[in-house]
Design a protein around this nucleic acid. Sequence first.
RNA 1: GGCCAGGUGGCGGAAUUGGCAGACGCACAGGACUCAAAAUCCUGUAAUCGCAAGGUUGUGCGGGUUCAAGUCCCGCCCUGGCCACCA
Length: 943
Amino acid sequence: MAKYDFKKIEKKWQKEWERQSIGKAVDFSKKKKWYSLIEFPYPSGQGLHIGHIRSLTAMDIISRKRRMEGYNVLYPIGWDAFGLPTENYAIKTGVDPRVATKKNTDTFRKQLKGLGFSFDWSREVNTTDPKYYRWTQWLFLQFFKKGLAYKAEIDINWCPNDKIGLANEEVIGGKCERCGAEVEKRKKAQWMLKITAYADKLLKGLEKVDYLDEIKAQQINWIGKSEGALIDFELPDASYKIQVFTTRPDTLFGATYLVLAPEHELVAKLKNHISNFKEVEAYVKTARKETEEERTAENKEKTGVELKGVKAVNPATGGELPVWIADYVLAEYGTGAIMAVPAHDERDYDFAKKFNLPVTYVIAPYFLDEKDPPRKGMPMVFRKAVNCYIKNPKTGKYLFLEWKATSWKGPVSGGIEEGEDAVGASLREIREETGYTHLRFKRYLGSPIRADFYHPAKKENRAAEFIGLLFELEDETREAVEDGERDRHVPVWIPEEEALKFLNTGMTFFERIFEHNLCYTDGGRLVNSGKFSDMDSEKAKGEITKFVGGKKTVNYHLRDWVFSRQRYWGEPIPIIHCEKCGYVPVPENNLPVVLPSVKNYQPRDDGESPLASVSSWVNVKCPKCKNPAKRETDTMPNWAGSSWYFLRYADPKNSKEFASMKKLNYWMPIDWYNGGMEHVTLHLLYSRFWNIFLHDQGLVPTSEPYRKRTAQGMILGEGGVKMSKSKGNVVNPDTIVHAYGADVARIYEMFMGPFDRAIAWDAKGIEGVKRFLWRVWDIARGEKISRTKNEKLEKLLAATVKKVGEDIEKMAFHTAVSAMMIFINAAGDEEIIPVRVWSDFLKILAPFAPHLADELWYELKNKKSVHLESWPAYDPKLLKEDTVEIVVQVNGKRRGSVFAAADAGEDEVKKAALGLPNVAAALGGAAVKKVVYVKGRIINLVM
RNA sequence: GGCCAGGUGGCGGAAUUGGCAGACGCACAGGACUCAAAAUCCUGUAAUCGCAAGGUUGUGCGGGUUCAAGUCCCGCCCUGGCCACCA
């Protein structure tokens, strides 16, 4: 038997497909278009990564299936070739990045072709090609013209090791994403893209696209929209006011101080009013020096300084509030100033505790008694009441009342009478109900609790506001308890653990005794809030904002995109600085601004790009006034070229436009985009931003570029850790392809596990896939394929075609492969395989194992490639079985099974079921009370 | 701390969305072929009791709903990803 010589076969078909242009996408074809996209790879010196194959194979399978379904498919490839590794390599070795990139892309191209991907190679793009980045620069100028590209003096994240400014997104936990060095702050004029102007459109656009839910969630989180209010606090002694942003205007009555970010402009302006300005200045200085890491470190103790001599007025209460500066308030978010409500905000609470600032509770959690809710027509009585918890420090036990009638245990409690305060009322209630007289008040137990219920004894509805208090027993001195009280309940001392058990009702202060943080951050009913008291907190947000003349507003976490890099290997920003004219765009006919050759790729110690040293390139004439001027020496970030590459694929050779509207109209939007989860915030957001912007300019046909977006799971090294050179656990795809062939490599990556989940590489499993394909090969030459019928295989094939087709659409490739394995295992057992059945099997195998499928296809004397065939249909009638096995259960437990016609009635099946000896034994003569029969599946006999 | 996934044999993982838990593959064990090995093929493989027929237990833990729960509800525990002093 001829051996399956995959090396020869795969090479043969790869050549043949290239000759026949199997992957060619035809502009303006009459067929329906389909655009599949994968994230174009960064051509690193290490060559293709095993992880690339997963995503590329998945979209190759989908693209090949679409072609068979009659679509005109665009499945393009290119190189995202600007980037730090190549530049760092240039710095180290002096090798021109262009040379390294050429070498790397050649390697990648060869590897990808060796895997049999059906790309349209005629549309290959390369972000470092001046013919490409000419248009990246042109697109930047469109942003500039609309005022969406601007230069700003900002604090940038500076990596002292890479000597490069980093976008916020490239700082991970205060460290440089690339090299891990501690990031510093540095002021620098940077080009910015105003992505924040598109925050709402980026959010809205998500509603109409089909992205995985987790991808949408991450984008929504990243944009971080929050609705709130701007509220002004007057500073009566100075003629300034402090504007704060808050999402909780309902807590305004509980604001007990204000906090400014250390960088807030008012700090300097208030200098003359601040009596401790030296201290303040010193604090500002340290705060500025701190790295992001230090400033945001977990569990960091709150720090801050009061602006002594400055007082603000709470516009709701008229009360005077101290003003502080503290680094827990961020200058870049909101107004850089907050109103602090320690009772209802964790951070403010921590700060208030540390600096001994007052805590005023204004929101009470609200409970409606479900067992005894307020009744219609009954009067509603509002009462303030106390819940008293008394600890005996000698025994550690707590005092409760056990009610004689119900044996229900609860705290000493009662209403606050006219003229009493909570502590006074408590002492009175404790004395009356338990007799203890010597108690020390310890503290309040957090926010009050509001509850509405019906009081059956008093025949009235109650709206109660409970206040929790903790007391300690000083000594055991007791008075006699009145008869009336003594008849109803007895005082009992109970240890903590036991009390926690019976008080587990949700409406108790007791747990709060053991909590150090008594801040309540949820909604509820307002208390201590003047005329707003008892209002629902959601409603109060609007009402209180209106009351103090505040303004409803929306804030985003999303920040503008820092678009400057002081690096060599990127697109030069096409701007000329002229003293007279300012920032002047390079005229369009002078594009591209080509990267000049340099001797030294190292960024300069002054933080400028190496381009700044090329004076012949830097010094130019102003395009407007012709006076001497200088080129911008910053380059664009890595993300620039990838923000629009999918548009270029539609029209990759166009020298007049970035892409013609006509072609974009035909190809856009992308029907299915698959890539890594690591790119679903930044790259996806940036490229959507560019596309939406270009759509607004009338330059692209759709607002959203991607109709559907999915993501594959990462392939990890053996043992479940990330593959990396340093760990030495990198699997080279070439080894697999050489040892097993491209088809095995492709299928194995699909078969390893669910496509969207991370999975550890395990070389052992690959043998199973090899056996599967070799079995296919062996069956093909086993002289079984004939014109004779085989009903069993025909039925199985129909089910397999259905399953494989549906699984591909769900990206459940592993179960699709499993279904084909089941088919092959069955086919191996059969004497006869009808030609039609075998043909159809090869068709569904073709997207997965394109080489083997085509080889076997031509063996069937076909004249054209299997990849030009149509995707097989199946006869739904073949999926229906006439006779089915019905599981028989007794009381839900399996006791056997019976075979019956698929549409058999209950009586018939029941009779057959009762005939089973096991069933009779399980019933033991007992009568069947109930029968549950699910047609074609199960019958359950209930005794 | 927030958001999102996920927890099923020795391992990767299936389970038509409430209807036979463990498909398919790996690994392992036994057998066939072979002088032998590899390859290939056949058989077995959740745990447990039993010679067997068969029984019992079993999908992270504790409750609940249901004739029936891996799947639904309530309360926890653990793992992974992203974000994180965003007011």
